[in-house]
Simulated scan of single mutants.
Amino acid sequence: MDNDRYDPQNDKGIYYLRTTAEMTVNDAARPSVTQIVNDAVAQCGQETDGSEYDMALWLHDWTLDQLEYDHSLNWCSAESGLTRHQGTCESYQRIYSKLLDAAGIANGRITGNGHTWNAVKIDGKWCQMDLTWDDTNDNWYGDLDQRHLYFGLTDELMAIAHSDHTANYQKGSYAYRSTDLSNNYFVRNGKADEWAEKYADRIQEHLNAKEESFSIDADNQSFPPSISGIQNGIVAHAMNC
């Protein structure tokens, strides 16, 4: 109740009542965002081995299955993404973050080049995930699975796609330093070793021929730099392991 007795305009004893109302709507056909997230994480727990890597990958793929990129740029929240199934990069990042939070997996938000994506901590190591750029069913680049190209990258490799990120991770206060590719999708599924083996065989041929200097053409030299640069970094990691 609000009655200011010192207000000269309030000489008629007028009272103002302020109330706050909370409303809960139960409709199985329209579950809440919290319920959608919790159901997804529960399903994830049933369909994976429960490891942080497998859960992060399952939730990544689940998010991509829910969303279409909103080119009109009208929808940018987790709520719009999970109910309207449309959203910008903000929706992808926020949905994945909610899922990871519910699964107990540490994560963070990173921005650069007018874009946002996730940092995810798997088995004590930070890595980078860009679900927006992974959301494609195209396969323009041979045996490179583009739907997982940006899953488990280092800071340096993510900066190939998002140049502003170089300034991010060079700051002393940066909290999500990602320098390890052990949880990269292609490293974990063995594809990186297959790519590296092709180069290793060609290198060995030159060595067997006792050539003092030689060069080898990259298999992906026709790919855009944002694709080939990342793939080459993954191959280099596999060859050094």
Rank of each mutant, 00 (worst) to 15 (best):
D2M: 00
L59N: 08
Q46F: 08
G124N: 03
E47P: 10
N220W: 10
Q35S: 15
D27W: 13
R94P: 11
D2H: 13
A218H: 08
R109I: 09
N3Q: 13
R188Q: 03
A209K: 04
N232R: 08
E211M: 04
L59F: 09
T154Y: 02
W58Q: 05
T48S: 08
N26G: 06
A102S: 13
T34P: 08
D135H: 01
N232I: 10
K198C: 03
D217Q: 01
R18S: 12
S173G: 13
N38L: 14
N118R: 02
Y174V: 04
G233M: 01
G81A: 06
W62M: 00
W133E: 11
A102Q: 11
D180F: 07
Y169M: 04
A42R: 11
D101G: 07
Q146M: 04
L157D: 05
R18D: 11
N220H: 07
E212A: 06
I36F: 09
D143A: 00
E79H: 08
D134K: 10
N240D: 10
L149W: 00
L153P: 01
H162L: 13
E156F: 07
T24Y: 03
D65V: 08
C76F: 05
N38H: 14
G142T: 04
D134W: 02
Q128A: 00
Q86N: 13
R147L: 07
D145R: 03
P31Y: 07
A209T: 00
M1T: 09
V25T: 13
T179W: 14
D11Y: 13
E90T: 05
S163N: 12
K121N: 06
R5V: 15
W75Y: 15
Q204K: 12
L131R: 07
I234E: 06
G142C: 07
Y15P: 12
G13D: 05
A167G: 09
N168P: 07
G152D: 00
W140K: 14
Q204F: 15
T179P: 10
N139G: 12
T34M: 12
N189L: 11
D27Y: 10
T166Y: 00
Q66N: 02
G124A: 10
A175H: 05
G152E: 01
S91E: 05
V41C: 10
P224M: 02
S213M: 05
D138E: 15
C44Q: 15
Q46C: 10
Q9L: 14
K191P: 13
S32V: 11
H71S: 14
S222T: 02
L73G: 02
N139P: 06
K121Q: 13
D217F: 00
A56V: 01
M239Q: 06
T88W: 01
M1P: 13
D130T: 02
R84K: 09
N3T: 15
I216A: 01
M158F: 04
N220E: 05
G104M: 12
S173A: 09
Y141D: 09
Y199E: 09
